[in-house]
Design a protein around this nucleic acid. Sequence first.
DNA 1: ATTTTTAATGTAAACCTTTACATTTGTGTA
DNA 2: TACACAAATGTAAAGGTTTACATTAAAAAT
Lengths: 344, 344
Amino acid sequence: MNEKIATIEDVARHAGVSIATVSRALHKPDVVSETAREKVQTAIAATGYTANVMARNLRLNRSGMILLLVPDIGNPFFSAILSGIEKGASQAGYNVLIGDTQNDPDREATYAAYLRSNQADAMILLNGRLPAPLANAPANATPPVVIACERIPGCALPTVIIDNDEASFIATRHLTDFGHTRIAHVSGPSNNILTTDRVAGYRRALASVGIQNDPALIYRGDFSIDSGIAAGRALLADPKTRPTAVFCASDGMAIGVIVAAKEYGLRIPQDVSIVGFDDIPHAAAYDPPITTVRQPRRRLGEQAITLLLDRLGAKAPFENREKGPVIVPTELIIRQSTGPCPKG
Amino acid sequence: MNEKIATIEDVARHAGVSIATVSRALHKPDVVSETAREKVQTAIAATGYTANVMARNLRLNRSGMILLLVPDIGNPFFSAILSGIEKGASQAGYNVLIGDTQNDPDREATYAAYLRSNQADAMILLNGRLPAPLANAPANATPPVVIACERIPGCALPTVIIDNDEASFIATRHLTDFGHTRIAHVSGPSNNILTTDRVAGYRRALASVGIQNDPALIYRGDFSIDSGIAAGRALLADPKTRPTAVFCASDGMAIGVIVAAKEYGLRIPQDVSIVGFDDIPHAAAYDPPITTVRQPRRRLGEQAITLLLDRLGAKAPFENREKGPVIVPTELIIRQSTGPCPKG
DNA sequence: ATTTTTAATGTAAACCTTTACATTTGTGTA
DNA sequence: TACACAAATGTAAAGGTTTACATTAAAAAT
């Protein structure tokens, strides 16, 4: 048996027509006669022909690939975003190629080169840094790139984000509404735009109710559970300086702070209130269920791919959108980790 | 400056050599003279040439893609596996193309066709079903496919799995060692091979210490937190029939069972012991920290890609693979959700 | 000085499509 | 009948690369 894979030429020979007719029968059936179409169909069935996508793409000068740059594919945070992107892309006939950059600028540059070398038609950035080759690109021709998750200040590329500042503002105000005045914030890494925006919203909320900002109440974490535990120990150890509420920039860190709080015998929310960020699936099942800012991650992915397909001229499977950065709405999910400020 | 992208021909012209020399300078530098090499290098720098990967792949009849079939990319369980695969693949110069099948046989078949149409050189299956085109493949030529996570009974393709039966055996024996005799099991969906294997291990463990199997103590979940809550409510509601320990086929379900247990005012592990499966990051930070079977997911991915690269490296397509499936070891992580069987 | 050997380079085919253009065939009209 | 026109099909180029083979130039051997 060990036959070679059938090419369009085999089909043509088998059908007794030219390769052009075969190609047309497949892609422009209306310009091909009924009889020829049928002959081609049987020939395809007989030979088991499948078009060589690489040859096709070479001819059409496209790859059908959308490159997705992720800082760490091992981070479950991206799963749902990915899912939204993949869904839209595959509906539009694109494949999603994942580039795990490990936050390494070299790897980012390598992947960005895929655009030039025709390995990818377009790119979505899930990390908030513009790969070097793109940053140097001429300003007149914007590359087919969309930025998601993290905005890049001063970058005109289509962007989809949540309003981190406003979300943090609302989360913090939820705590002030409960009467809290000593409110700590466990933030993300300092070089991160998300961190900046969330800290800003937190400060704005405090200022809006006349609470003076206390730098000692801001702890720099890295979004992980472990850093949350460290934050909790640092912030809650001393009963004299202990805040009555902690707003965390991730659910993981919120969980960590709760772990630390329990170590000190503190009750949540009677002794200290905790707010998280993201609304990961486990936030609702934790003890206590965690009040948190829900980030619509699948929506975020869907919007990103929509923006990109717009840019590519393909028809977008999701509802259309207007100019400017797209902001997908967040929602404060109030559960049992927050409550009134304790007396005294 | 809106010039066209430079081709090898531009480089050749610029360097004053033939395109063959340019190609050789890049891929077989040793057969090219020093001077020519230099000329080519400067020409490349001057033109900003990047090889058109599509043309290259067409010529070489490879795609450089490894297709990864995942039942649901939105499921964080796969993140770490993915990460391991991606790492190995990119080290070997391959890209990873993710195919989200949604457990839909049609989508599986579509993706499997990528192998035929040269869109992918090889495939890794993370779902336990052989796509139709593969199942019908001639038996003499094994396709470059590796199965991970779930074994497919009667399938000779290279496979990497954990020993679910043995892992469940050990987890259950951990409970019997604590003196438990009424041990429930919250399993996965019934059509799943993982479920079968884990139930088998659970039963084997009970039998090994002379405990009779009680079908009422097996609850069918779907790995989710919610199904765990449902399981917990069903199993723990009645104090008369209540088991003193529950072995869950996923950490999510273990968390759900704990949530339900707390609803009934039961203390973990004093009143009821809980064992999970997977060791997701949140298992250690839960209250109480959950005893669970650690599944080395990154290792699993690494092994899968290793197997595949082996297969691709072995030029002989008819060479038969060695022996049975690769089994990556699991580990029972004992935390605070398990303890001695309560008296009376 | 001539021939042989080796090294370096060039020419052109091949990979498999799609499609502009040319050609053939068929139909209706003057 | 001859002609214009439309429809269907075929021919061949193009897309950018790699590489077998042919050719040239230079060095080594006679």
